[in-house]
C-alpha cells in the first residue's frame, strides 16, 4: 500500500509545487490577474455598479449568482445539521456508527480508553448536580482568566463586526466577514457563559426567519432587480442610489443570516 500512496502524493504534489513555483512575483504589473477580467472590473466597476469597494461589486453584482447560491449552501448546511437525530447519548454508546470497513461496531462499546472513562464519570457527576447544565461547560469549570478576557473583549469584537458591515463599502470586509465575526463572538460567549445564556441572544421565535434571511433577501432583491431591469438579479445601471440600497440589504442579510446559521450549528452541537 505505501508505495502506491507515496506515488499518489507525488502525483498531486508535483503539479502543485510546479504551480507555486511559476506564480508571478508580487506586484508584477503584467501578472494574469491584472490583465484579464480583473482589469475590466477595475476599469469599469465603479461606474457600472456604483460600489466603491470592488470586491463587493464583484461579489454582489458581477458574480451575484455565485453569492446567491453560496448563501443557499450555507443555509443547506444548517438544514443538514438540524436534520440529524438529536439527543443521542454522548459517550457510553456514543461512538456507535463507526465508518464502514473499520472494526466491527460492538467492539467499540467494550473497554473505553482511559480519558473517556474519566470524562464520562465527570459528566455523570455534573448531571447529578444540575440536570440542565450544558455538558461542555460543566465538564471543566471555565478558567476565570478566559472568562474575564472573553467578556471584556466581546463588545469590542462585536463592534468590529458591525464596523466591518457598515464600512464594508469602502474598506475590506462586508457581510460574510461580519457574519463570521458575529458567530465567533457568540460562540466564545456561549463557551464562557454557558449555552443557555448565549442562546437567549437569538430569540427562538425569530430563528426560522433569521436563519433563512440571506437566501430570502437575495430572492427578494433578485425579484426587485427583475422588475426594474428585466434581468433576474439585475441592478439598474444608471441609478446608483437603488444599486447601493440593494447591495446594502444583501450585505445586512448575509451578515445576519450567516451569523445566525453558524451560531445555530454551534447550539445544535452543544445540546
Amino acid at each position: 500500500m505505501r508505495p502506491w500512496s507515496l506515488l499518489l502524493v507525488l502525483l498531486v504534489a508535483l503539479p502543485l509545487v510546479a504551480g507555486v513555483a511559476t506564480l508571478p512575483p508580487h506586484d508584477a504589473p503584467d501578472a494574469p490577474i491584472h490583465t484579464q477580467v480583473g482589469a475590466l472590473y477595475l476599469e469599469r466597476g465603479v461606474a457600472e455598479t456604483g460600489m466603491k469597494n470592488l470586491v463587493t461589486a464583484v461579489l454582489l453584482n458581477y458574480r451575484g449568482f455565485d453569492t446567491f447560491i453560496e448563501v443557499v449552501v450555507i443555509f443547506t448546511a444548517l438544514a443538514a445539521v438540524l436534520a440529524l437525530p438529536k439527543g443521542s447519548a454522548p459517550l457510553p454508546k456514543g461512538n456507535a456508527p463507526l465508518p464502514k470497513g473499520s472494526a466491527p461496531v460492538p467492539k467499540g462499546n467494550a473497554p473505553l480508553p482511559q480519558p473517556d472513562a474519566a470524562r464520562s464519570q465527570g459528566v455523570g457527576g455534573a448531571r447529578s448536580r444540575e440536570e440542565e447544565a450544558p455538558e461542555v461547560a460543566s465538564d471543566v469549570p471555565v478558567s476565570p482568566v478566559v472568562r474575564f478576557v472573553v467578556r471584556l473583549l466581546a463588545p469590542f469584537i462585536a463592534m468590529f463586526a458591525v464596523a466591518m458591515l457598515f464600512r464594508g463599502h469602502i474598506t475590506p470586509g462586508g457581510g460574510f466577514q461580519a457574519a463570521a465575526v458575529f458567530a465567533a463572538v457568540f460562540i466564545a460567549l456561549g463557551l464562557v457563559l454557558g449555552q443557555d445564556r448565549a442562546a437567549r441572544l437569538v430569540p427562538v421565535d425569530w430563528r426560522p426567519w433569521l436563519q433563512g434571511v440571506a437566501p430570502l433577501a437575495f430572492a427578494l432583491v433578485a425579484w426587485i432587480g427583475w422588475r426594474l431591469t428585466g434581468a433576474f438579479l439585475g441592478y439598474p445601471i444608471d441609478d446608483h442610489t437603488v444599486q447601493e440600497a440593494m447591495g446594502f440589504v444583501l450585505e445586512i442579510a448575509i451578515a445576519v443570516g450567516g451569523g445566525v446559521v453558524l451560531a445555530r450549528i454551534f447550539l445544535e452541537m452543544e445540546t
Partner: peptide
Amino acid sequence: PDVAMTEAAVGAGVTTVLFLITIARTTRR
C-alpha cells in the same frame, strides 16, 4: 484582507470550536 478575515474567524475560530465540541462528545483518540 477580506479572505484573511474570513479565514481567521471561521478557519481558526469557529471550526476549531466545532471540532473541539465533536471531540468532547466522542473520543480523543
